[in-house]
């Protein structure tokens, strides 16, 4: 059985180790072009680890399995984290990660849906949740138990289409739809331009069962995903408070950069520091 599905008990220590591996992959990827959306990727690493190595039901050998849970990355520029997860899941080769963002690479800096494991084109922000609503409706018509997880971000909440989708999800009582709202406090022009708070209250008022947690706390992420399994007629929103650059001090402290660029020598020293901190290197 190659399929991933949630075990009765989560091995939190193993998930934390896996999140560290994802982060290490992302540093390799960003070093390739000297740049990338590494801040966002490191921030969402724990949630993606919990999804791909605990919560989601999918089969890396059969990506088109009709009853798979779907993960839709609405913020296509978070692809750096998705590629790391897909490589660890055995869907794309780990050796390919170094091509991230390079000419002719299928590991784009903003996702297209032509790479294996990618469910939708992300990146034109505000497109993901509506597609998740459609997929959840389609799965329900087919009487499938599969669920749909949509990642979106706090900056993306400024796109009005997100709220069109949010309204329709509760109207259609799509309780198999889970929104993961990554609140990292940054967007293209710097700190979130429009104050989106209180984010959780907004989702509640749109009829969603809403949870708000530290998105870098693996115990909390795993426990909340378990709560979100309930089929109670309501879509679920998990507001993830994440730290951009989480786990790499120099990126955490880099004025909350939306797009992080340093020279190769600095990448090497960042990687050294990360490996020492996480015990990968003495």
């Amino acid at each position: 059985m190659t399929r991933n599905s949630p075990p009765a008990e989560a091995d939190i220590a193993a998930l934390k180790a896996r999140a560290t591996t994802l982060r290490r992959h992302m540093l390799t990827m960003a070093r390739g072009q000297g740049a990338g959306y590494i801040g966002q990727g490191l921030g969402i690493a724990d949630a993606l680890t919990a999804l791909y190595f605990h919560e989601l039901r999918y089969d890396p050998e059969n990506l088109g399995w009709v009853d798979r849970d779907r993960f839709l990355l609405s913020t296509g520029h978070y692809s750096i984290a998705l590629w790391a997860a897909l490589a660890e899941a055995g869907i794309i080769p780990v050796a390919e990660l170094v091509t991230y963002g390079a000419d002719n690479s299928r590991l784009e800096m903003s996702t297209l849906d032509t790479t294996p494991g990618v469910e939708v084109i992300g990146g034109s922000l505000g497109h993901g949740l509506g597609q998740g609503v459609g997929q959840a409706l389609g799965l329900r018509l087919d009487r499938s138990e599969a669920r749909v997880f949509v990642e979106l971000s706090d900056g993306e909440l400024q796109e009005g289409s997100t709220w069109e989708a949010a309204m329709s999800a509760s109207h259609f009582q799509l309780d198999g739809l889970v929104a993961l709202v990554d609140c990292n406090g940054i967007q293209a022009d710097g700190p979130v331009v429009l104050d989106m708070e209180p984010v959780a209250d907004k989702w509640r008022s749109f009829g969603w069962e809403t949870f708000e947690i530290d998105g870098n706390d693996m115990d909390a992420v795993v426990a909340t995903l378990a709560k979100a399994r309930q089929r109670n007629g309501k879509p679920k929103a998990i507001v993830l408070r994440t730290l951009p650059g989480k786990g790499v001090r120099r990126i955490e402290q880099s004025e909350k950069s939306h797009f992080f660029r340093v020279d190769v020598g600095q990448w090497d020293s960042i990687i050294d520091e990360f490996e020492q901190n996480v015990g990968l290197k003495p």
């Binding site: 009709v66 509506g130 597609q131 459609g134 959840a136 409706l137 018509l141 069109e164 109207h171």
Partner: peptide, 28 residues
């Protein structure tokens, strides 16, 4: 009626929801 969905006055979402349905094998 079971295969008909009115998404309200929201045309961007209309297209996105139709796209999502198509991804589950429906013709929308």
């Amino acid at each position: 009626p079971e295969r008909f969905f009115n998404v309200g006055m929201a045309e961007q979402n209309l297209v996105a929801v139709a796209a999502g349905l198509a991804r589950t094998g429906k013709q929308a």
